[in-house]
Design a protein around this nucleic acid. Structure first.
Lengths: 108, 108
DNA sequence: GAGAGTGATATGTTTTTATATATAATTTTT
DNA sequence: AAAAATTATATATAAAAACATATCACTCTC
């Protein structure tokens, strides 16, 4: 598994986790079977573009190609986007991730 | 063929042309058969990541996924990169594209 | 019009994804 | 520790990519 592939699969898994989806839920939303998602995430399959795009869409990710020379700038953008999470200016996408966990208190 | 796919395949073809490669030459460099490249470019195949990456590498492109909210910024970077072509500061990659054409206005 | 280069098609074979379904293995929760 | 949820494996089948190779159609140029 080459570097690019690792990067992409890592991004997929991270995005799934960040959204709090299980593989099953991602499966339900994307139409890709859970067993296949497992194989994909563990790099045991050379997936097709359609699968990749189907998953990416559900995870609010977009797939691209960019000139190699622009890669650092792009990575920088992505990095800061991930760092900021939802820091107040969010009025888009991210459906509010519950980033806490005070044991037991489930007051609802 | 969905939007994302179109975008990507378009980028591949454009990059190939910009580099002045024929499908045959790209084939020789990437290991992907010319007949397959033809099918890919015309959107007649749901190609695998490995093929996509193999082609992208030869064309000095990189594949990735980015959070949807970063897309405009990224596209802007890519756009200006393509616009600038080689405007003096080039010391990398681009092997000098002949960006002129006197007569033969084939604007399509 | 012959010859060369290019992209699209065609055929046949091999390899692999994608899928369904089930279940084992692992982790998390209660 | 038991239960529940999640992820990894397994098997079988169908569909499609990947491949090699050849050829066709088209456009140039000489």
């Amino acid at each position: 598994m080459n570097y690019v592939t690792e990067q992409i699969l890592g991004s997929l898994r991270d995005a799934r986790i960040r959204k709090g989806f299980s593989q099953r839920e991602l499966s339900a939303r994307s139409g890709v079977p859970q067993s296949h998602i497992s194989k994909i995430e563990s790099g045991n399959v050379d997936l097709r573009m359609s699968s990749l795009i189907a998953l990416a869409r559900v995870l609010d990710l977009e797939l691209f190609v960019a000139p190699r020379k622009t890669v650092p700038a792009i990575k920088s953008i992505i990095r800061s986007s991930n760092a900021t999470h939802n820091n107040g200016l969010s009025d888009e996408s991210e459906p509010m991730s519950p980033a806490y966990q005070l044991e037991e208190y489930d007051d609802d």
